[in-house]
Design a protein around this nucleic acid. Structure first.
Lengths: 224, 224
DNA sequence: CTTCCACGATGAGAATGCGCATCCGGCCCC
DNA sequence: GGGGCCGGATGCGCATTCTCATCGTGGAAG
């Protein structure tokens, strides 16, 4: 939990550092843009608190530079400029929050907690099986990095099989999953059909579908 | 891009809705907690704007309830309470931002843009895809540096597709992002219509919208 | 070991209905 | 009042989907 504070007014900077250190963060204090850049070159931070008016330049340039470089670090602007246009401009330039002096240290801490909390915790729900990757959210299938086009039925079947990988799924079960409501009219052969289609599209992958006669189907990888 | 606004003061709520709709968001307005919960039960939102003082209870309870349920939707508190302790409490309870009335609509919009782009995992504002550049803040689209005029709906759709680039978005999902409840009577092929219009305007660009029959649409660049 | 049967695999073809284009009317905002 | 934005309706083309029919194969019993 390391935070960079860029602030030229000594007493403000020191007060912020003292407060954040008491809250358990490791803090580096820079009073000029150049010093901030030196810190950033050798250290990565959970979060950056940035004053806009600095003796050797404008904080906005640092902000833009970082974003252009692709840095995703949350940045909180802390400044005396209270004009709405300045706020909008900074936020649109890539800042994540904007606090106007004078401010309350408790609020600063709370807002930093929010930024750090947000920055963590976005997991990708991708399922992997051998060289087969399936992302249910994106509805995308890849074999060894190459995308494989799938139709809707194929996709739902793959979803069923992969979310229960390693288990044998009865044909009735798969049938329910595929044709839950319109089942009355569709023949019993349909499941086998889509199993065949899936197998064909998954040829060349290390994932495969085993047949267990009289029981159902099971998905697994070749080796393992 | 659908936003839920929970606000009991009619003129404030309507002003916010008008402003956000002009910016291309689909908005649902709830003036009571109960209504908000009903909306949330049947619809998912990109973001929630929440007033704390409501006729049938305290907004904080909704906030806590959502977080306990594990909802990760960004929430912006919009209230007249200006005490620091109230802000800290709300932020620690799971709110992502806190704006005190009276506020400037431009700042609200800017802060919502921040929350939404953060939620999507992007740090800065401008999105690029091949030679197509989209700036949600400026509501501007460029193909190879040349500006392309877009209508509001087209822009909203492009925003949806680009912020989820590489993923297949179902027609229902796009529909929900495009239209709010009051416009519920629009036909089902409205989405196809705007897809067609977008494609026409994006002809000549390396950005492309693929159709995945039965699944939805997916945005990508020609090469890759 | 052999034989037979039932279950599963596979290919070809037909119909459903999805998605696209187009034209058009209506509405809102200027 | 008018121009652009918005969304309705229709007809057509075709991918997807499912049926049908045939062939392959595993397994158990004699």
């Amino acid at each position: 939990m390391r935070i960079l504070i860029v602030e030229d007014t000594a007493d403000v900077g020191e007060a912020v550092v003292a407060s954040l250190e008491r809250a358990g963060y490791a803090c580096d204090l820079a009073d000029r843009l150049q010093m901030a850049e030196e810190f950033l070159a050798v250290q990565s931070y959970e979060c950056i608190v940035l004053d806009l008016s600095l003796p050797d330049g404008d904080g906005r340039s640092l902000l833009r530079q970082l974003r252009k470089r692709g840095a995703g670090t949350p940045i909180l602007i802390l400044t005396a400029e209270f004009e709405v246009t300045a706020r909008v401009e900074a936020l649109d330039a890539g800042a994540d929050d904007y606090l106007v002096k004078p401010f309350d240290l408790r609020e600063l801490e709370a807002r930093l907690r929010v930024l750090i909390r947000r920055d963590k915790g976005q997991a990708s729900g991708v399922m992997q099986l051998g060289d087969l990757a399936f992302d249910p959210a994106a509805q995308s299938v890849q074999v060894g990095g190459a995308p494989v086009p799938m139709t809707r039925r194929e996709m739902t079947l793959l979803n069923l099989m992969m979310s229960q990988r390693g288990r044998i799924l009865s044909k009735e079960r798969l049938f329910e999953g595929l044709f839950s409501f319109e089942r009355a009219e569709v023949g019993t052969n349909a499941v086998e059909l889509y199993i065949a289609r899936l197998r064909k599209k998954l040829a060349g992958s290390s994932a495969r579908i085993e047949t267990h006669r009289g029981l159902g189907y099971r998905m697994d990888a070749d080796d393992a």
